[in-house]
């Protein structure tokens, strides 16, 4: 039984085949990287997995259920969380509030207990606050708690997005270019963070362009090109795969 199994997944936009018949699976507590040139369909694949796009065909099996075509919020509640390529924080909220929103589904008390301030309400609010601090500490953001999230440097915003994804309680985490725009020092810190998440029992899929990062962190790698999976294997296998080299460097013309 795999945590996530994708079978012959396709997404077409009119006549354009953004992804075509992609199949793969993940193993528990591993890091799977998806690489490929621009326009290969990586983000489209993420969007299908997380419910932001309806796949045209194929199935996505997660915890023994076909989740293809379910809404984004349902998929998140089932245990898949993601970050976005172009960072989507709640920019005017503080760092802490961002992580509190992420724990929305952990709270049972509703309208009535909020108005009457029942003990249950207060207890739950306290619990998610404590949890929020834990998540922020894990990402090294504990000193930024009360900062307005949109005003933080780029690297910190990426980390907060990961903290937020983590705080939803998901077991499968999808990171879309987690090191984009980071300097080498931040990148290696991000590597440590993600490996730490794997140690904590999370399964991770990530899209990344930084090859050193990908080769250093991944348990397995999938290569997409023009919407099709052209290779899969360990970092060593991918490095020497002629198909991959061709996709990245182009076909020799003579």
């Amino acid at each position: 039984m795999y945590p996530l199994e994708v079978k012959a997944l396709s997404k077409h936009f009119g006549g354009i085949r953004a992804i075509e018949e992609i199949s793969f699976h993940t193993k528990d507590r591993t890091i799977l990287s998806i690489i490929g040139p621009n326009g290969a369909g990586k983000t489209t694949l993420f969007n299908c997995l997380t419910g932001f796009m309806k796949p045209t065909r194929g199935s996505i099996i997660f915890s023994e259920r076909d989740i293809s075509g379910l809404s984004a919020d349902k998929i998140n509640r089932m245990g898949i969380a993601r970050t976005f390529q172009n960072i989507r924080l709640f920019r005017d909220m503080t760092v802490l509030e961002n992580v509190l929103v992420a724990q929305h589904t952990k709270i049972r008390s509703g309208l009535f207990s909020a108005i009457t301030q029942l003990p249950l309400f207060k207890r739950e609010e306290r619990t998610i606050r404590e949890k929020a601090y834990e998540y922020l500490e894990l990402l090294g953001l504990e000193t930024h708690v009360d900062k307005v999230s949109g005003s933080m440097p780029y690297g910190e915003q990426r980390k907060l997005e990961i903290a937020r994804a983590l705080a939803t309680g998901a077991s499968l985490l999808l990171f879309d270019e987690p090191t984009a725009g980071m300097n080498p020092q931040e990148t290696s810190e991000m590597m440590r963070i993600i490996m730490n998440l794997r140690e904590l029992g999370k399964t991770i899929i990530l899209i990344e362009h930084d090859m050193r990062f990908v080769m250093g962190i991944s348990d397995r790698i999938i290569v997409l090109d023009h919407g099709v999976k052209i290779a899969e294997g360990s970092p060593e296998e991918i490095k020497t795969n002629p198909m991959v080299i061709e996709a990245y460097l182009g076909k020799e013309t003579h």
């Binding site: 997380t50 419910g51 932001f52 809404s71 984004a72 919020d73 349902k74 998140n76 509640r77 969380a81 993601r82 976005f84 989507r88 924080l89 709640f90 920019r91 005017d92 909220m93 509030e97 509190l100 929103v101 992420a102 929305h104 589904t105 937020r164 994804a165 939803t168």
Partner: peptide
């Protein structure tokens, strides 16, 4: 919090498991 999250970013809100 969910309301304000919706105001700030709907997509991210549904990625938090909130039914927008």
């Amino acid at each position: 919090r969910a309301w304000i999250a919706l105001r700030e970013d709907e997509i991210a809100t549904s990625a938090m498991g909130i039914n927008r």
